[in-house]
């Protein structure tokens, strides 16, 4: 039986622990602190918790000011309102300021409600452009974790590594994929299944969909490598080059516009190291729409983000390259 867990709850609990260990950690929210589960941090550390109301530009820039003075601010709200609304503030107040070899200010932007799986709130809230926005801004590191283990480890890692970081959490509970012992490094992907016929690289909730596809392809005698690429920037070009060389084709999966997003990042890397055919599973340059919780799989299906679509992409690569 697969265990499901809530990313936001784990994020909030991890912050609480980290707050005890490191007094420089501060949390800034924008009227979504209940939803992002940062409220308990505010209860425990009222002097290090700031709720600025529905004012994301202010949220992001105040976090930059705090970081400038040596604090480690976690700025959190929904994906649609942070990268979506504040690209100027993120670029100019967080990413740009650099001195003494420190590139950008040490703000940790952790958002929830990324991608189509936001569900009922509809297209306005389903941010499918954030990976693209964030990865083109110099100095910012971009992460899309697949499960709660990843969230805990990355949140902790954020407090240990200097620099502006972005992490996108899912709204819904996600299956636990990684073991508690799994190590996470920035810029290193994790091979979840080895295989030799094709490689599926995924991030966020699509990792578990990719695993499903690999399992079903295995039944058909196709051996797929599956990589959790939670670190989109920096990207693990080594693991990608190896996959290209050893398996001959790559399918990327993301809950994001396929343009300029994760699939694009993989393609850019592969095309410069070991060009093979790459097929991108993701949103095809269109907006999402409302879907109730039980209907989210239908919404994903409409946009071609299912294990069947992944399997078909794998097969198509194999037929084209043979």
């Amino acid at each position: 039986m697969t265990e499901f867990a809530d990313m936001r709850t784990v994020y909030g609990e991890t912050l609480l622990k980290l707050g005890d260990e490191n007094s420089n950690i501060v949390v800034v929210g924008a009227d979504t602190t209940d939803s992002l589960k940062t409220k308990p941090f505010g209860k425990k550390f009222p002097n290090r918790f700031f709720n600025v109301g529905i004012a994301e530009a202010n949220l992001v820039t105040m976090a930059a000011g705090l970081a400038n003075e040596g604090k480690i601010p976690f700025a959190s709200t929904y994906a649609a309102f942070l990268p979506g609304r504040c690209v100027d503030q993120i670029r100019n107040a967080i990413a740009y300021p650099s001195r003494n070899g420190k590139n950008g200010l040490n703000v940790k932007m952790v958002v929830s409600h990324g991608g189509l799986s936001v569900g009922p709130d509809g297209g306005s809230h389903q941010q499918i452009e954030d990976i693209a926005i964030m990865r083109v801004i110099p100095n910012i590191k971009v992460f899309v974790p697949a499960d709660t283990v990843s969230v805990e480890k990355l949140t902790r890692l954020f407090t240990q590594v200097y620099g502006p970081c972005y992490m996108r959490l899912a709204r819904s509970k996600t299956p636990v994929i990684h073991s508690k012992e799994q190590e996470f490094q920035m810029g290193k992907g994790i091979v979840l299944r080895d295989g030799s016929d094709c490689t599926i690289v995924a991030c966020g909730i699509t990792v578990s969909i990719a695993l499903e596809a690999a399992d079903s392809l295995k039944q058909e005698g196709i051996s797929c490598r599956v990589i959790d690429m939670f670190s989109i920037k920096p990207i693990d070009s080594e693991i990608l080059e190896k996959a290209a060389r050893e398996t001959g084709g790559i399918v990327t999966c993301e809950e994001h516009n396929v343009m300029a997003g994760f699939g694009s990042a993989v393609t850019e890397t592969i095309s410069e190291t070991y060009p093979v055919l790459v097929k991108r599973i993701g949103v095809k340059d269109q907006f999402g729409e409302s879907a109730r919780d039980g209907e989210i799989p239908l919404l994903l299906e409409k946009h071609g983000i299912t294990s069947i679509h992944i399997s078909n992409a794998v097969k198509s690569i194999r037929s084209q390259t043979r």
């Binding site: 105040m62 000011g65 400038n68 003075e69 503030q89 100019n92 107040a93 650099s98 001195r99």
Partner: peptide, 29 residues
């Protein structure tokens, strides 16, 4: 920041006051 003595990378307008509030809160902490 390339210039010593500069406390804020300006240019995009409207940001400095929020940034300053962050600085002021950090000083208080």
């Amino acid at each position: 920041f390339k210039c010593p003595g500069v406390e804020f990378c300006g240019g995009s307008l409207g940001l400095g006051l929020s940034f300053s509030i962050g600085m002021a809160l950090a000083a208080r902490i």
